[in-house]
């Protein structure tokens, strides 16, 4: 029943055997060993499993890995490294936007996707962009502030 699923994750080709019923989330975590995408509700509600699939923010728990055959994926592991944080990761860390951290990978991908499309978002744009991501700790305000700080940082970097 298994077949080969080949896709690109964070610029690297990944090819593994998977059953059709295997979710993209399970494929990423268990076959690719990328555990940054979180298994929360597995019902599309919490956004912890969010990834960018061909540039679109999606919940990987509701997608079969076979559906992503040939696709380009970005997970939180592709955003930055501990020594080279992305501007968003930098802002989240500086601003204290992360508490337990469980929601943060999904938040970062939602925010990355927002800033790619809208480099100068207002608070409402930010709240809308993360409206599919639940956080049980922070009350969202520091997350919203961090995203807006990152937008400023990026603007500064552009000159």
């Amino acid at each position: 029943m298994k077949s080969s699923v080949k896709l690109t994750v964070n610029g690297l080709e990944q090819e593994h055997q998977a059953e059709p019923r295997t979710s993209l989330l399970t494929f990423l975590r268990e076959q690719c060993g990328l555990t940054g995408s979180k298994r929360g509700c597995e019902e599309g509600e919490c956004g912890g499993c969010s990834v960018l699939l061909d540039g679109e923010l999606v919940t990987s728990c509701l997608i079969f890995a076979v559906e992503a055959q040939g696709a380009q994926l970005v997970t939180v592991e592709g955003l930055g490294t501990p020594h080279h944080l992305s501007p968003l990761q930098e802002a989240f860390a500086t601003d204290g936007a992360s508490q337990c951290g469980f929601c943060i990978p999904g938040m970062l991908l939602a925010a990355t996707n927002l800033l790619e499309r809208n480099p100068d978002p207002n608070e409402q744009d930010i709240r809308k962009a993360i409206s599919g991501n639940l956080c049980r700790c922070t009350g969202y305000d520091l997350i919203v502030a961090a995203i807006s700080m990152a937008a400023e940082l990026k603007k500064g970097a552009r000159g």
């Binding site: 599309g44 919940t59 599919g132």
Partner: peptide, 9 residues
Amino acid sequence: VGGPPIRNR
């Protein structure tokens, strides 16, 4: 309908 990731699917 749902949040942004749902509306993308």
